[in-house]
Design a protein around this nucleic acid. Structure first.
Length: 559
RNA sequence: UGGGGUAUCGCCAAGUGGUAAGGCACCGGUUUCUGAUACCGGCAUUCGCAGGUUCGAGUCCUGCUACCCCAGCCA
């Protein structure tokens, strides 16, 4: 696998470089901390490349730690999928897979420590009351009436919460910080809440679960994480993150650094919304090729290298509110596949061509390069017969100027074969063109015809030897750049009705034994990937990863 | 209207007081048995706006403006 660790410098990398030069750290430790409540998407890929990339660049470690503090939303299946995505991306985490739940005992002891220090208390307020007491963005909150209850009582209550003596929402453990803080996260944040759910890692051992804030920083400290990189929305949590580290006997003091999350045009990167698309059956599972999930992009035909390249291209900053054009992603995969995908020909909308001066039963085989610039990809055999298929788009009865394809009385080259001339257009009862009768210039194989130049080259497939395949032509799932821009509207209204168009194509025989996930460039059309599920079942299904750039279409548009 | 952030080409993004990198897109041109690729050239007198400091400011100061995040017992 190509390992383009070009990785452009960014502010985090620069900062770490300085720390290392100043001797503040010798070995860095980062971590990728997904919650197993959904599949990883392109936004996670950015974080993955950053965290694993940093460890790679500085000779440090990157841990994989599942942030599994909310059993109500998490599942083992997501854990398995996330691990597979990471492996596929080409990253190895240091040591075993870790879980925040590995530290539940320590976290509990630290909660008790805080209570004894008079810095935490069990609160009996209801969720509604807690919200009410918290105040608003502009008004200070009020202390809970339970705020000053004794440490002994809180300790006892917390233990009983843990034993399952209370119902969900009956009690919570809160830190005692500052109800008047302008930073709402410091208004006595919740440390533990009661959850009756069975936990995918700890089973029924616990009835209380730590909040993200109470678990994350301490887990980082336990693991010796030096740089805890997260997204901008956690910036307001940093004072709290540090408050815990400063008020608990933790073994280390990691630093939280925030960067801007990725916004990609025409796509959604909200786990909640992606899950809705999956649950409502709007797409074919979490790995639907139209989804920006890592597994979806994999199925679509993206390569790990292309995803890494894309992440390098977009960079890492603290500038938020931006929107990366999806065209950048397309460029990343095209440039990879241009270099690495073998070529083949496939006709998408077949139009029959009878080559009148080729005898019935005649057969010859052309040898074509597997890749025009890579000898290591060998050659493929192209059987040539009297009847062939070409694409309907490559013929026009009344062509505009500069239409370098087939038209009545015009010549065109069959890719890797002869130049042919269109002598006759046959129409069906409906008036549509049903067949073309052409003649071959046999003196044009591997050389230009005498005295004239034939500019156009079109792809074709022998009618006798062509292999029927199902082609799934994927396009953006949404029709607008920011599907969820309008908070009052339903993002489903912007679904693209043509995000998937299935067509029966006919491909050259060389793709007959394509392995699942084999990628090809269907010449003059685009890049395609053998569907890993369908092909594993013996079907021949190809997903369009991305089309080739189309200068002709662009020129037409301009008029 | 509280707090925390961010503003450099259509998009992403370098730049940390010395006279605006790069990529994507776009526009020309060359090559081409993929209207693809490759290659060559063009593409910010200007860094949200207005003042100020300085010999010199995208970089420092002041004041505006716009946008993003925060009132889950989600992460």
């Amino acid at each position: 696998m190509s390992n383009e660790s070009t990785s452009a410098p960014n502010f985090i990398r620069n900062q770490i470089s300085e720390e290392i030069e100043a001797g503040k750290v010798d070995k860095i430790v980062t971590r990728f901390p997904p919650e197993p409540n959904g599949f990883l998407h392109i936004g996670h890929a950015k974080s993955i490349c950053l965290n694993f990339g940093l460890a790679e660049q500085f000779g440090g470690d990157c841990h994989l730690r599942f942030d599994d503090t909310n059993p109500a939303k998490e599942e083992q299946a997501y854990i398995d999928a996330i691990k597979e995505d990471l492996h596929w991306m080409g990253f190895e985490w240091a040591g075993d897979v870790r879980y925040a739940s590995d530290y539940f005992d320590q976290l509990y002891a630290w909660a008790q420590h805080l209570i004894r220090e008079g810095k935490a208390y069990v609160d009996d307020l209801s969720p509604d009351e807690i919200r009410e007491y918290r105040g608003t963005l502009t008004e200070a909150g009020r202390p809970s009436p339970y705020r000053e209850r004794s440490a002994d009582e809180s300790l006892d209550l917390l233990e009983r919460m843990k034993q399952g003596e209370f119902a969900e929402s009956e009690k919570v453990l809160r830190a005692k910080i500052d109800m008047a803080s302008p930073n709402i996260n410091l208004r006595d944040p919740i440390l533990y809440r009661i959850r009756q759910a069975n936990h995918h890692q700890t089973g029924d051992k616990w009835k209380i679960y730590p909040s993200y804030d109470f678990a994350h920083g301490q887990s980082d400290a336990i693991e010796g994480v030096t740089h805890s990189v997260c997204t901008l929305e956690f910036e307001d949590h940093r004072p709290l993150y540090e408050w815990f580290l400063d008020n608990l006997p933790v073994p280390a003091k990691p630093r939280q650094i925030e960067f801007a999350r990725l916004n990609l045009s025409y796509t959604l990167t909200s786990k909640r919304k992606l899950k809705l698309l999956v649950d409502q059956g709007i797409v074919d599972g979490w790995d639907d090729p139209r989804l920006p999930t890592i597994s979806g992009m994999r199925r679509r035909g993206y390569t790990p290298a292309s995803l890494r390249k894309f992440c390098d291209m977009i960079g890492v900053t603290r500038a938020d509110g931006g929107l990366v054009e999806i065209g950048m992603l397309y460029h990343a995969i095209r440039s990879d596949l241009e270099d690495n995908a073998p070529r083949a020909m496939c006709v998408m909308k077949p139009l029959k061509v009878v080559l009148t001066n080729v005898p019935e039963g005649h057969e010859e085989v052309f040898e074509a390069a597997g890749h025009p610039a890579r000898d290591d990809m060998g050659t493929r055999k192209l059987p040539f017969t009297r009847e062939i298929w070409i694409d309907q788009d490559d013929f026009m009865e009344e062509p505009p100027k500069k239409f370098f394809r087939l038209a009545p009385e015009k010549e065109v080259r069959l890719r890797n074969g002869y130049v042919i001339r269109c002598d006759e257009v046959v129409k069906g009862a409906d008036g549509d063109v049903s067949e073309l009768r052409c003649s071959v210039d046999f003196d044009t194989l591997g050389k230009n015809p005498e005295g004239r130049k034939v500019k156009g080259v079109i792809h074709w497939v022998s009618a006798e030897h062509g292999v029927p395949i199902e082609v799934r032509q994927y396009d953006n799932l949404f029709q607008v750049e920011v599907p969820d821009k309008d908070k009052d509207a339903d993002f489903l209204d912007h679904l693209n009705p043509e995000s998937l168009v299935i067509v029966e194509g006919i491909a050259e025989p060389s793709i007959r034994d394509a392995a699942p996930e084999a990628r090809y460039q269907f010449e003059r059309v685009g890049y395609f990937c053998a569907d890993r599920h369908a092909c594993a079942e013996g079907k021949r299904v190809f997903n369009r990863t991305v089309g080739l750039k189309d200068g002709w279409a662009k020129a037409q548009k301009k008029g």
